[in-house]
Computed example of a mutant assay.
Amino acid sequence: MGLSQLSSSFFFGASTPNFKRFKHIGLIKTSSKSDLITDSAAGATAFSAGIKTYNRAIGIDMDTLAVKLIPEVIDSNISSGVISTSSITHATPASFYAHVKTRKLEEDIATFLPKSPIDFFAGGGKKFFFKRKDNANLSKDFQNANFVIDTISLKKPSVSEFNLSSKFGFLLADNAMPKASEGRGDFLPSATQIGLDYLSQNKRGFFLMVEGSQIDWGGHSNDSDYIVQEVLDFDMAIGKALDFAEKDGNTLVVVTADHETGGYTLASNDGDYNKIKGSFSTSGHSATLIPVLSYGPGSEDFIGFYENNDIFHKIMKVTNWASSL
């Protein structure tokens, strides 16, 4: 999600986007340690661990050694969760709980989730846990980790069940969730709200990573309509986070992206300056700087130009979670 993807919500949405509610704005350079143009694995590991690493790396450094991720830094003191419209084993969510040499090893990535400090998750990816090529079934691993897993629907448990004595996971598609335009419904904003309701029960604090994963896929497909629908869906999830933060008064919200995809531009349609169409320069990623929007305590620290891995260190400073390192 680059600036043009974000901008699309101001032209194609039915209402004022939640993006407009942010007052503090910065820009990050996303290059990885191995490449000028990053992939999502290295880009997300920069956020989750505060280091630059090689493309395809999940939660490891250039020497393939595991690095401490935000949920591992805060561990049992602070609750943590990940939400994604991709499989939960995809590069970005995986970078917040797994340590593998390449993002392609999704079955290996899956084995990390039950053992990780993650308390709440929602997304796709059932087959990587329950229909594996090695015939292993991770149900027992989840059970041993005190997880309640729902593979049917995104349904908030009853008040009596929905407490921190159990962990909760929703795996609602074999691989990725459907496109927003193909029946995903309100999964992302609803999962965000349920995650906030659950994790905020921990009065010591919480960390939640929410990814509008398929904005990227629209870029790879050079499909502007796909991008627009996914950005608007992500904007609704941002609205849930901002509503919570405004009411709570002590929550930091940071919105950014691993990288831009597609070299997406909002161009005039056949020279008509009153009509906009999306155009593309690549089916891959680009090196363009990425917006960082922040709201809440410490949000002013996210203004300016800086490297993507600085996001981790700024979060650590603002929350004082750095003392756990």
Rank of each mutant, 00 (worst) to 15 (best):
Y306W: 04
L172H: 08
A136R: 15
S15G: 03
S160C: 01
F305A: 05
E72C: 03
G284N: 08
D174G: 12
I303H: 02
G2F: 12
M209G: 04
G2Q: 08
F312T: 10
V73N: 07
A41V: 06
R103I: 05
N146Q: 08
K126C: 06
T261G: 06
I78C: 07
D216M: 09
I83N: 03
I315A: 06
K275P: 00
K247Q: 13
V100R: 06
G249V: 10
S95R: 11
K156W: 03
K101G: 13
S79E: 05
F147G: 01
I25V: 15
L27Y: 14
K101W: 04
F121G: 04
Q143Y: 09
F206P: 00
F162T: 10
H24A: 11
T282W: 01
R132A: 09
V253F: 05
M209E: 02
N308D: 13
K240A: 00
S268C: 09
K126Q: 14
Q229N: 15
T282F: 02
A191V: 00
I28R: 11
Y226R: 06
F10M: 11
M236I: 00
F96K: 08
R132D: 11
K314N: 12
T53F: 07
F120L: 00
N144C: 06
S281P: 02
D310A: 15
V73R: 13
G124R: 06
T151D: 03
V318F: 03
F142R: 12
I311W: 11
D39F: 10
